[in-house]
Computed example of a mutant assay.
Amino acid sequence: MASGLVGSPLRVSRPPVDGGQRIGLEIGSSDAVKSKIEALLPDTSPISGGTVEVGPTVRVKLLVDPSDAEVTPSDAVSASTGSNIQMLWTWFVHPKHPTSALLLTAHLEVPLSDGHVISNYISLRIPVHRTLGYTAGQIFSNWATWSAIAVSGIGITGWLLRRRHAKAKAVPAAPTRPH
């Protein structure tokens, strides 16, 4: 282990992602970090990611394939004191399509006093569920779908008009009596 680095537990807080959801990466543990997780990521329970070697300064970036999702940094909390590392980073993840496993990579960088940087990569897999908005967007963004809907509407309207006209012809006029 490099001088000045300590092993700290790593946890990921994430719900299944639907439309857009916040996920968090926590290193260390403290009441301040736990209360921030409860406020920012309600109804999630952290999942252990093992132990990482970190120092008092850590940079984290969440990487994702741009064709799969957009990631926007949200909050960062550092409640570290000396060698007691307690940090939290959160991001908003906006998936572009449903998948059983959206692949994200957390890139951790720990700068050392000699100018070198230790890098760690942590892979995250998050299920993305299909939403009504996504399905509607798929349907209504395709011109072939719109043309099929229009042709069906015209066909149904024509059928109803013909049926109505046929019923009008089938009803005989009431016989008139001579006076």
Rank of each mutant, 00 (worst) to 15 (best):
A106W: 01
T135H: 11
H116K: 13
L102C: 03
L103V: 12
L102A: 08
E109C: 09
I122W: 01
T105S: 15
V128Y: 04
I122G: 01
L104K: 00
A101L: 10
L104N: 01
I122V: 14
T131C: 09
A136R: 05
D114T: 02
S123C: 00
I126T: 15
L132F: 13
H116N: 14
L108C: 06
R125K: 11
L132K: 12
Y121M: 05
N120D: 13
G133R: 10
I126E: 12
A136W: 01
H129W: 04
H107E: 15
R130S: 12
A136M: 07
I126F: 01
L102M: 08
N120L: 12
Y121P: 00
A106C: 04
I126G: 03
L102V: 05
I118K: 15
L102T: 04
G137F: 07
V117W: 05
D114Q: 03
N120S: 15
L103K: 13
I122M: 12
T131V: 10
I126V: 15
A101E: 14
H107D: 15
P111T: 11
H129S: 13
Y134F: 15
Y134M: 06
R130V: 10
L104W: 02
R125T: 07
H116W: 04
R125A: 09
P127F: 07
T105E: 15
S123P: 00
I118Q: 14
I126A: 12
Y121Q: 11
R130Q: 10
T135C: 04
A136P: 02
V110D: 03
G115A: 05
E109A: 15
N120R: 14
R130W: 01
H107I: 08
L108R: 11
G137R: 10
A136C: 00
V128D: 08
S113T: 14
V128C: 07
Y134W: 15
I118A: 12
D114P: 03
S113F: 06
Y134K: 08
V128F: 07
S119P: 04
V117M: 09
A106I: 00
S123H: 03
I118P: 02
N120Y: 13
Y121L: 13
L124W: 09
G133K: 09
I126W: 00
V110E: 02
E109P: 07
N120T: 12
H129P: 02
L103F: 04
S119F: 10
I126K: 03
L108F: 14
T135F: 13
H116I: 01
L112Y: 09
L102S: 02
V128M: 08
G133H: 11
Y134C: 03
G115E: 10
P111G: 06
H129A: 14
S113G: 09
S113W: 01
Y121C: 01
T105W: 10
G137Q: 10
L132Q: 13
V110S: 02
L108A: 13
L112C: 06
V110A: 01
I122F: 04
L103E: 13
L104H: 00
G133I: 06
H107S: 15
T105F: 08
H129G: 13
L102W: 06
L124Q: 09
D114K: 04
I126N: 15
H107G: 08
I126C: 05
G137L: 05
L104G: 02
P111M: 11
Y121H: 06
Y134V: 04
S119V: 14
G137D: 11
L132H: 11
Y134R: 07
A136N: 00
R130N: 06
I118W: 05
T131L: 06
D114V: 04
L103C: 01
R125M: 03
G115Q: 09
L124E: 10
R125F: 05
